[in-house]
């Protein structure tokens, strides 16, 4: 459809989105498997457990809900807790919107369902200045499939991976975040500062226990993004549009 050649074809297709999302699918595998297993021990049927992964699709919130359900916590509090844990996605999808190809609202409303910390990270660190809609669908679909399928599998087999593999695979999502961040840090001091300042602030909230994880990530991200922007605006050096 275009003379842009391989580059254009590659970065805009559903298939290349699937490919870019493989590392998320690998990372979700052990987490979803364990969720299925824990849901079973909490007393949820396979339908109840899998339905949560299908309709909610939020790792941390789902894990917390299991603890709350087993303690018999009021459903309203479970829903409130879920909202608090996921409130940071307001910030992420607002940021992602700057990078997404212009598209009909209802279409964006569909792939928005697939935006997690991980799919956001993969999409937002693409080098292209604009991300095509099919690419976003590709990333979302493979990550979501892994999450849903391995929740069910975890419930059915009711057992974990061998201990050494389970332990080793617990690093997968973090290794992916590192793999996405470091190439952007090369020769770009602003990116280094953004990540570093946010990490330090987040560490501060973690060790002092002043904020829960969801809020801590939100505040650390926002403070770092604003602070570094102010510093660089004063120096007149900013990220190019595409970065």
């Amino acid at each position: 459809m275009h003379l842009g050649g391989e580059h254009f074809v590659n970065k805009n297709s559903f298939f290349s989105g699937l490919k870019a999302g493989v590392s998320i699918a690998i990372g979700y595998f052990p987490v979803a498997l364990t969720f299925g297993l824990l849901a079973k021990t909490t007393g949820l049927s396979i339908w109840e457990a899998t339905a949560m992964s299908i309709f909610v699709y939020a790792g941390a919130a789902q894990y917390m809900s299991l603890t709350l359900i087993s303690k018999g916590v009021d459903p309203i509090l479970i829903v409130l807790n879920t909202f608090v844990v996921n409130i940071r996605h307001f910030l992420m999808t607002a940021a992602l919107n700057e990078k997404m190809q212009s598209e009909k609202r209802w279409v964006k409303g569909i792939y928005a369902f697939g935006i997690t910390d991980e799919s956001f990270s993969v999409l937002a660190t693409q080098k292209e200045s604009k991300i095509a809609t099919p690419f976003a669908f590709g990333v979302a679909v493979i990550a979501y499939s892994s999450w849903v399928i391995f929740t069910a599998v975890g419930h059915v087999i009711g057992a974990n991976l061998p201990a050494f593999l389970q332990a080793a695979m617990s690093i997968a999502l973090y290794a992916m975040f590192v793999g996405l961040l470091v190439p952007s840090m090369r020769g770009n001091r602003k990116v280094v500062m953004l990540a570093l300042v946010a990490a330090v602030i987040n560490g501060f909230f973690y060790w002092t226990g002043l904020l829960s994880t969801g809020w801590s990530i939100l505040v650390a991200t926002l403070v770092s993004s604003i602070l570094i922007e102010v510093i660089y605006a004063k120096r007149g050096k900013n990220l190019p549009k595409g970065a």
């Binding site: 940021a95 956001f120 946010a198 987040n202 991200t221 770092s224 993004s225 922007e229």
Partner: peptide
């Protein structure tokens, strides 16, 4: 400008600690 910074700040916070 601030929104363009967010991905890298998020990654820092998601990774550490």
């Amino acid at each position: 400008g601030v929104l363009r910074n967010i991905p890298y700040a998020v990654l820092g916070a998601l990774i550490f600690p």
